[in-house]
Simulated assay, not measured.
Amino acid sequence: MLWIELTRKLSENLKEPFELEFVWRQQHELSKLDWLNLMREEISEEDETTLKAIADRLAKDEPPQYIIGWEDFAGLRFKVDERVLIPRPETEELVQMILEENPHQEALSVLDIGTGSGAIAISLAKACPSWKLTASDLSESALELAGENAKANQVQLELVCSDVLDDIAGSFDLIISNPPYISPDDRDEVDASVQKFEPDSALYAENDGYAIYEKIAQQAPQHLDEAGRLYMEIGYKQGERLKAIFETAFPEKEVSVIKDSFGKDRMLKVC
């Protein structure tokens, strides 16, 4: 059987027909031209077995990033698996905004709450070597993976196991967080692959998705320097309520809701 025949047959059962191509190309470091040339060849029994196994995993909604074992984010590569949320493009916009608005050469102290794979903290540390990054998470296994990613990307992080700021000492110039913000009642709105494979603790929060934000609002004023800034990713329906919450927590600061490239409320800034 030719590669193209088997690939077409297996892709018919997938929600995203190009996922099979994506996984195989990434695993074998093939260019698009390499893949097109491969399609004209006879497939070996070994490759047929492997390709069918990948297609089976994809058909069961396993994310391609977990199958290949990594995701690119902000120009860097991060190992990902079921211990952590897969970094999203909208979070890259948060990182970009932080880098645009803060001096790279100053020795800023920065805290990333709920670091997961370490994508935010590591990206900032890579771009700004003079910044001192602390990355916290409630999950020990997530922190273990963040440590692996920091080493792979050759940056230094202080890793702290903490429920929000419960076990965080000191104050910071920047506090950043992309916390869980989906209401458990909205679980059915989440893609099947996310529901089945990505960690619930990184997705869902009590009190209609506001619980972690409320805890940050309660604790952050004691840990943010007087001239410090707070940056967070938010759900697209949460901007108005979160603006009110953080205006109460930081009455002397300006609270802004920022839209993403699709025009949706996606980030909140306190400065």
Rank of each mutant, 00 (worst) to 15 (best):
residue 176 I to L: 12
residue 187 R to N: 10
residue 63 P to N: 09
residue 197 F to S: 09
residue 113 I to N: 07
residue 123 S to P: 11
residue 158 E to R: 12
residue 127 A to F: 00
residue 93 E to Y: 01
residue 149 N to Y: 00
residue 198 E to P: 04
residue 96 Q to G: 14
residue 18 F to V: 07
residue 171 S to D: 14
residue 200 D to G: 03
residue 2 L to C: 03
residue 66 Y to H: 14
residue 20 L to A: 04
residue 143 L to K: 14
residue 203 L to K: 09
residue 134 T to K: 12
residue 249 A to N: 09
residue 202 A to F: 00
residue 55 A to T: 04
residue 99 L to Q: 02
residue 92 E to M: 04
residue 140 E to Y: 09
residue 233 E to T: 01
residue 236 Y to Q: 13
residue 23 V to W: 05
residue 201 S to I: 15
residue 51 L to P: 12
residue 77 R to G: 09
residue 169 A to L: 12
residue 181 Y to S: 03
residue 165 L to C: 06
residue 141 S to K: 15
residue 11 S to P: 09
residue 25 R to F: 07
residue 222 Q to N: 13
residue 107 A to S: 14
residue 161 C to T: 13
residue 171 S to A: 09
residue 150 A to D: 00
residue 226 E to T: 12
residue 58 L to G: 07
residue 72 D to P: 08
residue 176 I to V: 08
residue 104 H to W: 07
residue 23 V to R: 11
residue 134 T to I: 09
residue 15 K to C: 13
residue 268 L to V: 09
residue 60 K to L: 03
residue 168 I to L: 09
residue 226 E to A: 13
residue 43 I to W: 01
residue 210 Y to F: 15
residue 160 V to T: 13
residue 163 D to G: 08
residue 100 E to G: 00
residue 142 A to P: 06
residue 198 E to L: 03
residue 165 L to V: 03
residue 88 R to S: 01
residue 246 F to D: 12
residue 149 N to L: 00
residue 175 I to M: 11
residue 22 F to R: 13
residue 46 E to T: 13
residue 14 L to H: 07
residue 24 W to Y: 11
residue 245 I to H: 04
residue 103 P to I: 00
residue 22 F to W: 15
residue 221 P to W: 03
residue 141 S to G: 04
residue 209 G to H: 11
residue 118 G to A: 02
residue 131 W to K: 00
residue 236 Y to T: 04
residue 71 E to S: 11
residue 257 V to S: 05
residue 31 S to D: 06
residue 194 V to A: 02
residue 54 I to Y: 13
residue 88 R to C: 04
residue 196 K to E: 08
residue 65 Q to F: 00
residue 67 I to C: 03
residue 193 S to E: 14
residue 181 Y to M: 08
residue 167 D to Y: 05
residue 62 E to Y: 11
residue 16 E to Q: 13
residue 243 K to Q: 15
residue 221 P to D: 06
residue 59 A to E: 15
residue 64 P to E: 07
residue 141 S to F: 01
